[in-house]
Design a protein around this nucleic acid. Structure first.
Lengths: 256, 256
DNA sequence: CGGCGAGTTGAGGACGCTCAAATGAAGTGG
DNA sequence: CCACTTCATTTGAGCGTCCTCAACTCGCCG
């Protein structure tokens, strides 16, 4: 755990899309964001109660997980680099946590001491709304996936979405990196690990997916992939509250 | 479609938990909330783009629905009396709509003309955040249901949650009203109608559920019901941004 | 080389879906 | 009040999908 110098040349807070850091500086208070390194399987548990902690995935991949009494695990959402998770997401009944699926780096900001002040900050609340909205859209789509797609469609959808996100990354080659184990994929898709494995070999043999190794693949024909799905792979650009902020007061606070 | 007098004696906006009406009056503008009656199956479609419409279910039950290319339907969330749905929830890819599952009355407010102004209103944005948060918690739990519960557990969970919500209603007797058809339940739980029917008769024969008729039932022993589930039925009280608002400026705006 | 964990593959079975028919409930018109 | 229509629901038979359990392979590291 080390306190971060907000704008270093390696991986600055630019990765953090909602720019939470800007509120830290704006308020001139010692809400210290700090980076945490996490190994695969490590967890951050702060989903109880009302803590206003935020975790931005700077590097790696993390998952919002929950577990039932008998040990069944469900991955509710995946958080790739740049996405922000907030501690308010849990329901307080079943245990929730943020788990690194591969070696990751998380930037943690705890706004709790400033909560009352930020509740009166329209720009901050707009950011919160946007974050919640993005998460909600993602979760809703995932819900449809679990409710109405069969196992093969789920895996195809998962691989396709991952591939699309991958090409948007700046330093990506043609290969897509699979950031998680078969069991993690299964827990994300509501399947079990063996089924995922079987489907992956089926997709490999059918030529829809080409695997370079166990954790890297290429989609030779994205159109063909999409034809196997009853819903589009491309994500529409979600427009939210941010668009209504005419003056854009946040931008004035961004450093550099 | 009739414009509503905000505080009538029959079913006033008190039912609207987030009290959206208060923002209408605060801004002294003609954002006219009006009530819409809906028959079973009727739809409100405004999930495209960025309209800032809100629908509060005043009476009845509505569902946020989506449909895949081949006609598979998924009910993402149920909206009972008092809950608010907002047009921002859709992802823009697949069609989304709000559908009445039984004869319902919806209060519609379109804040679009005031969007820019409201974006600078911290109290309004806090309300938005709270709404999004509530929806997100609900959707996440639903997602776990679809991902990790088998069909019987899903139905039990559904009936149990409905029963708990029912006793909180003011005018409820011991019987729980089932506000939707078997097919609607199936589309909510990711099953098909026949399976739902089979499970209901199984639960009836096992004595877990007593049916008064096709749409009313009693849970003789809620504890026994909960023992069949790997997760608690009771919903923890979610605490969100509202708690941080010290002065509670909204309350001063409430009429009466 | 041996051990370990992740992944793959196979056999068998349970669960949930499809298709089809029967039953029930509610409304309409004679 | 009763035939008749219509639609939702129930029930049954058969089957496909996905899970469970188990054996086996592969890659990695000591």
């Amino acid at each position: 755990i080390k306190t971060i110098a907000p704008l270093k040349d390696d991986l600055p807070c630019i990765a953090c899309t909602p720019r939470l850091c800007s509120f830290v500086h704006a308020l001139k208070q010692d809400v210290s964001p700090h980076h945490v390194g996490m190994q695969r399987g490590e967890r951050l548990e702060c989903f109880t109660g009302s803590c206003m902690k935020f975790w931005t995935v700077v590097r790696g991949t993390a998952a919002i997980c929950t577990m039932l009494r008998d040990g069944r695990r469900q991955i509710i959402a995946l958080s790739g680099a740049g996405s922000v998770v907030c501690g308010l997401l849990a329901d307080g009944n079943t245990p929730h946590w943020l788990e690194a699926l591969e070696p990751s780096e998380i930037c943690e900001i705890d706004f709790t001491p400033l909560a009352a002040e930020l509740a009166r900050d329209a720009a901050f609340m707009r950011t919160m709304t946007d974050m919640m909205h993005d998460q909600l859209v993602q979760t809703s789509q995932h819900l449809v996936t679990l409710g109405r797609l069969d196992s093969t469609e789920r895996v195809i959808f998962f691989l396709g979405r991952l591939a699309i996100q991958s090409v948007r990354q700046p330093n990506s080659g043609p290969a897509v990196h699979l950031p998680m184990s078969r069991e993690d994929i299964a827990d994300y898709l509501g399947l079990n690990a063996e089924t995922v494995s079987r489907i992956l070999t089926k997709l490999r043999k059918s030529g829809l997916i080409t695997f370079l190794n166990r954790s890297e693949y290429v989609v030779p024909d994205m159109t063909k992939l999409e034809r196997r799905l009853p819903l589009p792979l491309q994500q529409g650009n979600s427009q939210v509250m941010g668009q209504f902020a005419d003056g854009k007061p946040d931008d004035t606070m961004v450093q550099a």
